[in-house]
Simulated scan of single mutants.
Amino acid sequence: MEHREPVCQFKLMASRDALEVIQGKWRIPIIISLTYGRKRFGEIQRDIADISPKMLSQELKSLEVNKIITRTLFDSMPVTVEYSLTPLGMSTKKLLDELLDWGIHFRKEVVGN
């Protein structure tokens, strides 16, 4: 059995944990949408035009389970539900800014736009 660097193993596990929470086609766009403030389901769906209601619902539940977003129910008629980022969700801002910067650089280098 080969010796594994403890720091490397820790970082690999932490990166897997992070990717597990934000991976996929829709989670980062949902998080980005909510960086602009709390929103109702339909508002998020308008921001991300090509997501189906079923997929949006599934992804919102996953992000809620992972404490990235919070779901607030308002006792109104009809009942109103709003989604917002938790402090943990807000902590992704720096990561998302870096990802956007890298995406712009990638696009210039590889795609040519």
Rank of each mutant, 00 (worst) to 15 (best):
W26N: 01
S52N: 03
K61C: 09
L95D: 03
F106A: 01
L12E: 12
P29Y: 00
R16L: 14
I51M: 08
C8V: 14
K54G: 05
L56T: 07
I68D: 02
I104Y: 14
K61G: 02
D50I: 09
A18Y: 09
L99H: 10
G103Y: 14
I68E: 01
D50C: 08
S52P: 04
T70S: 12
D50L: 13
F10S: 07
S15E: 09
Q45N: 06
S33V: 01
K67P: 02
I69A: 00
F74M: 08
T86H: 02
M1E: 09
S52V: 00
I31T: 02
K25W: 11
P53W: 13
R16Q: 13
Q45Y: 06
L56C: 02
Y83I: 06
M90L: 11
D47H: 08
R40N: 07
G103N: 10
A49V: 15
Y83W: 12
K11Q: 13
V111I: 12
Q58A: 10
H105G: 04
Q9G: 05
H3C: 08
G42K: 13
I32T: 08
E64K: 13
Q9M: 14
D50E: 15
T92N: 05
F106I: 05
L96S: 01
G37S: 02
L12Q: 14
E5F: 13
V110N: 08
Y36T: 08
N66P: 04
R27E: 06
L95F: 15
R71I: 06
Q23C: 06
H105L: 11
H3S: 06
